[in-house]
Lab assay of single mutants.
Amino acid sequence: KLETFPLDVLVNTAAEDLPRGVDPSRKENHLSDEDFKAVFGMTRSAFANLPLWKQQNLKKEKGLF
């Protein structure tokens, strides 16, 4: 399991300012399950079932792209 970080560490943070080991294209993977659901309004599995373009739009909207 990946290390999780608080939302404010990941949202609207440039790649070079992210904690070590965080993939800038997969910031959402480093949210706790609770934060993930609070941000996206759905579970990880529901998010994973969305088309890629919709996932990317949601990530942009939430500052996690």
Rank of each mutant, 00 (worst) to 15 (best):
64 L>P: 01
42 M>H: 01
38 A>C: 11
27 K>V: 15
65 F>H: 15
30 H>I: 03
36 F>I: 01
65 F>Y: 14
50 L>I: 05
7 L>I: 13
56 Q>D: 13
60 K>M: 12
6 P>G: 06
65 F>K: 07
7 L>Y: 15
13 T>G: 11
6 P>D: 07
42 M>V: 05
3 E>V: 12
16 E>V: 11
19 P>G: 04
35 D>N: 05
23 D>L: 04
5 F>K: 03
55 Q>V: 01
17 D>L: 10
40 F>M: 06
22 V>M: 05
54 K>Y: 12
17 D>Y: 08
20 R>L: 15
36 F>H: 00
3 E>G: 08
52 L>I: 12
5 F>E: 02
63 G>V: 01
53 W>N: 08
16 E>R: 10
26 R>P: 02
43 T>G: 09
3 E>C: 14
14 A>H: 11
58 L>Q: 02
39 V>G: 00
34 E>F: 10
64 L>T: 01
38 A>F: 13
55 Q>W: 00
12 N>C: 14
57 N>Y: 13
53 W>C: 13
39 V>F: 06
2 L>H: 13
28 E>T: 03
10 L>F: 03
18 L>D: 04
36 F>K: 00
31 L>P: 01
43 T>E: 11
6 P>L: 04
61 E>L: 11
31 L>N: 01
28 E>C: 04
23 D>H: 06
14 A>Q: 10
17 D>M: 10
45 S>N: 13
44 R>M: 05
12 N>I: 06
14 A>D: 10
13 T>D: 06
7 L>R: 05
18 L>V: 06
3 E>I: 13
48 A>M: 13
56 Q>C: 14
22 V>N: 03
11 V>H: 05
2 L>P: 14
62 K>G: 04
38 A>H: 11
46 A>H: 10
14 A>G: 08
4 T>A: 08
6 P>H: 04
33 D>T: 06
27 K>R: 15
57 N>R: 14
59 K>L: 08
33 D>C: 06
38 A>I: 12
31 L>W: 02
11 V>K: 10
54 K>R: 12
52 L>H: 10
54 K>V: 13
48 A>L: 10
13 T>S: 13
25 S>V: 09
36 F>S: 00
1 K>S: 12
5 F>Y: 15
49 N>G: 12
56 Q>P: 00
20 R>Q: 15
15 A>V: 14
64 L>Q: 02
61 E>R: 08
29 N>R: 12
26 R>H: 15
37 K>F: 15
52 L>N: 09
